[in-house]
Measured scan of single mutants.
Amino acid sequence: NKEKKVFISLVGSRGLGCSISSGPIQKPGIFISHVKPGSLSAEVGLEIGDQIVEVNGVDFSNLDHKEAVNVLKSSRSLTISIVAAAGRE
């Protein structure tokens, strides 16, 4: 599966507009579980089932849900590497 990078700058009070969840035991990782229509996440093409592999240089493969949320909230400017639809297989 091809990795792609998206860049998101949080402007004003707009949030990311997506929710994440941890994958099942047999498929660990952090996946996008919800994308709000019209949100920044939707605008850059994030979709439900995409796996987040890295954010701002932080490897997401071994993070738990709480740590992942903290990384996503730690910066107003995010570089997110995803594997599209990895969670839909």
Rank of each mutant, 00 (worst) to 15 (best):
S22D: 08
G29H: 03
Q51D: 01
L16Q: 01
K5V: 08
C18L: 15
E43V: 05
T79N: 14
E89C: 11
R14K: 13
S41M: 05
P24D: 11
S77Y: 12
G49Q: 00
L78E: 04
I25P: 13
V44F: 10
F31K: 01
A42I: 01
K66Q: 12
H34F: 10
I25C: 08
F7A: 05
L16G: 00
V55M: 04
P24I: 06
V83A: 10
G15Q: 14
S19A: 09
L46T: 00
F31V: 05
L16I: 09
S81H: 11
S13H: 10
P24S: 14
S19T: 15
S41Y: 01
V83C: 09
R14N: 10
R76W: 04
V35I: 13
F60A: 05
F7M: 14
E89D: 15
G23K: 05
V44H: 15
R14I: 06
V44L: 08
K4S: 07
N70T: 05
E43Q: 12
K4F: 10
L16Y: 02
S13E: 14
F31Q: 04
Q51H: 06
H34A: 12
S21V: 12
I30R: 02
V44W: 06
C18Y: 03
I82D: 04
S39T: 06
F7L: 09
G17F: 04
A84K: 14
L16F: 05
P28D: 07
V69G: 15
F60K: 03
L78K: 04
H34Q: 09
I30C: 07
S33W: 02
R76A: 10
S39W: 04
D59S: 14
T79W: 10
V55F: 01
K66H: 15
L78N: 04
K27D: 11
K5P: 00
G29T: 01
E54S: 15
E3V: 15
I80W: 00
E54H: 06
E3P: 08
S19E: 14
V6A: 03
L10F: 03
S19G: 08
I20Y: 04
L78H: 03
R14P: 07
H65P: 01
S39Y: 00
G45E: 03
Q51G: 03
A84V: 09
A86F: 08
K36P: 06
R76T: 14
K2G: 01
I52H: 02
S33M: 05
T79G: 04
K27G: 05
V35E: 00
G15S: 14
G38W: 04
G87Q: 12
S33E: 08
P24H: 11
A85I: 07
V6L: 15
S74A: 10
S81E: 07
L40P: 15
R14L: 06
S22I: 09
E89L: 10
V35W: 03
L78T: 03
E3D: 11
S39A: 03
S81K: 13
S13K: 15
T79K: 13
A84W: 03
G38N: 11
S61Y: 06
G49F: 01
S39R: 01
F31E: 00
G49K: 01
P24Y: 08
E54Q: 13
V53L: 06
G87W: 07
D59A: 09
A84D: 07
L46S: 01
G15I: 07
S39P: 03
G45P: 00
N62S: 12
P24E: 08
K5D: 03
S13C: 08
S77P: 05
G23R: 06
I80Y: 04
I25D: 12
F31R: 03
Q51S: 02
